[in-house]
């Protein structure tokens, strides 16, 4: 179980971007982290995975616990060894390596060769398309294939917690669904917890068990996926729907303004 207690994150000792985030990811669950650009979602993931330190960011207050142990002072590599992996936003494949080499880098921290080989087959089982492309240079794969590769690379570390940063970014709706189906299946079959950062609220809440809505470095709303799906504010601001599930009319834009004022 992952537990964030009231963490604050400061970049370069000056810019405070997270003002007390608390969240919990139960074992085997899918948790969605939602919010607009600049809300602090990615920073939250980096705080967990330890990549924050690389970017001169620091967890200045609060604690991050993984299976009862504090990890907010561990390095990215140590955290990786504990079974937490983050797939970065924006399909960052290793462009000059082949598909298979990309996947092997994902298994860098693991020793046993035959198990790595099994996991390679496992990833190819979830993403059959990657198997066909195993000797292709990753830089020339299509966007969807690259996203599959990045997700598969995260799977290769045999994680207990997989953090995915906007897997739907820039993909066609059909591909988004395909990838989300695979993430769901991976979670069901392997009981890997998934922490999902997403702008596409609808699809994220489809597979998530619970979710958190962030704004300006704070959690403003949290609850089960059902609760969030039916929450008026979430519908209004993140799904573009008004009260009864009908498409929002922009003639009623005054209503929007009034709401924002008392927020």
């Amino acid at each position: 179980m992952l537990k964030l207690n009231n963490i604050e994150v400061v970049y370069l000792n000056v810019v405070r971007v997270l003002h007390g985030i608390s969240l919990t990811v139960e074992d085997g669950s899918v948790v969605a982290l939602l919010g607009a650009n600049g809300a602090g979602k990615t920073t939250t993931l980096k705080a967990i995975s330890g990549l924050l330190k690389v970017e001169e960011g620091d967890v200045t207050d609060g604690s991050i616990e993984w299976e009862g142990r504090r990890i907010d002072h561990s390095s990215a590599q140590e955290i990786g060894k504990l079974g937490i992996v983050q797939a970065l936003e924006g399909r960052r494949v290793f462009g000059h390596l082949t598909t298979e080499e990309n996947l092997l880098v994902g298994a860098h921290n693991r020793k046993e060769r035959h198990i790595i080989h099994q996991d390679l087959e496992m990833v190819y089982h979830y993403f059959p398309r990657l198997k066909a492309l195993r000797h292709n240079i990753a830089g020339y794969l299509s966007g969807g294939e690259q996203q599959m590769l990045v997700t598969g690379r995260a799977m290769m570390s045999a994680p207990k917690l997989m953090m995915l940063d906007e897997p739907s970014l820039g993909l066609a709706p059909m591909l988004v669904e395909e990838i989300y189906d695979i993430i769901k299946r991976f979670n069901d079959e392997r009981h890997t917890s998934v922490l999902l950062v997403e702008q596409n609220v609808r699809i994220a809440l489809n597979i998530a068990h619970s979710g958190y809505v962030m704004e300006n470095g704070r959690v403003v709303l949290d609850g089960s996926a059902d609760f969030l799906r039916n929450n008026e504010d979430v519908k209004e601001f993140y799904m573009g729907l008004s009260a009864v599930g009908v498409k929002k009319s922009y003639r009623a834009v005054k209503h929007y303004k009034r709401r924002k004022r008392w927020l």
Binding site: V85, V105, H108
Partner: peptide, 23 residues
């Protein structure tokens, strides 16, 4: 070699390689 592949990957993307647990 695993380390050799990791070294080439580092050339491509230093942050992503750290996300994979490569020191």
């Amino acid at each position: 070699h695993k380390m050799g592949i990791a070294m080439r990957a580092t050339a491509d993307d230093q942050l992503a390689v750290q996300a994979c647990g490569v020191p």
